[in-house]
Design a protein around this nucleic acid. Structure first.
Lengths: 128, 128
DNA sequence: ACTTGGCTTGGAGTTAACTCCAAGTGTTAT
DNA sequence: ATAACACTTGGAGTTAACTCCAAGCCAAGT
């Protein structure tokens, strides 16, 4: 797959794909004879995985570490697992905080709705 | 309340509190005769509200707009309500995306756990 | 009176995460 | 063969959201 195809498939700018590769957020992609990137199936899986993790706010730094561990082979399986568990913990906390904020927004919106209703009542009263 | 107290109460750096006020993310706080901030009850409520919304990732830009609308009085109630509804929509989407990522992390961790178990079995076998 | 310490302001600096750009190379169409 | 085009690289620029800093003010303690 060319970079253009991958960019379209995952809706990630080409510059971002190159940037991710440069900083080691995805393993290095193979080039063809003329030096142009040729994404393999596995490369695509990495891109998709990273996109998913980034969209949930996992920091790039941590993901780079994960990729580095992965490239060191089986000896780092335990470390990778621990890294993911730590990130899961933080993700759960973030989701919980957001849920709280959501409830607060719901409440605030409900109050505004009530205010609007009151105003309409007043309006009707004054129309008589 | 002094800025030091507010900073400690909400665990927000003083510089951040000043910054929030400077950019209009919270309404201007009154100063005493010698020009020092004296946070009222309402100021504190704003700080707490903004902290909550920011922690859920609502952009500063949008919150500034909310504060501006608020300061324009009752005529903007409908607009404020709409703004909050839009932000709620986006927050729900974000939470859903994060939940998906969480499930994926759970799955990945489970796989790693499985691998670790397999490795242990192998080890035991080779010990015989 | 003088130092200490917390506060003020406006402005500069930092960090994370892109995003853009210039200069250059290789393939394809005319 | 020459233009058009997609791609390459390394490096510079941008954006959001802080974070730090210098210079100065003012009240309290010695």
């Amino acid at each position: 797959m060319t970079i253009t195809e991958v960019s379209e498939k995952f809706d990630i700018p080409q510059d971002t794909l190159r940037y991710y590769e440069r900083i080691g957020l995805i393993p290095r992609v193979n080039r063809n004879k003329s030096g142009i990137r040729d994404y393999s199936e596995e490369d695509c899986n990495w891109v998709e995985f990273i996109k998913c993790m980034r969209s949930a706010g996992l920091p790039i730094e941590v993901l780079i570490e994960y990729v580095e561990l992965f490239q060191q082979g089986d000896a780092t399986i335990e470390a990778r697992k621990e890294l993911l568990i730590e990130q899961r913990k933080q993700l759960i906390a973030k989701i919980e905080a957001m849920q709280k904020t959501l409830e607060r927004l719901n409440y605030k919106i409900a109050v505004y709705e009530q205010v609007v209703v009151e105003k309409e009542k007043e309006l009707k009263r004054s129309e008589n």
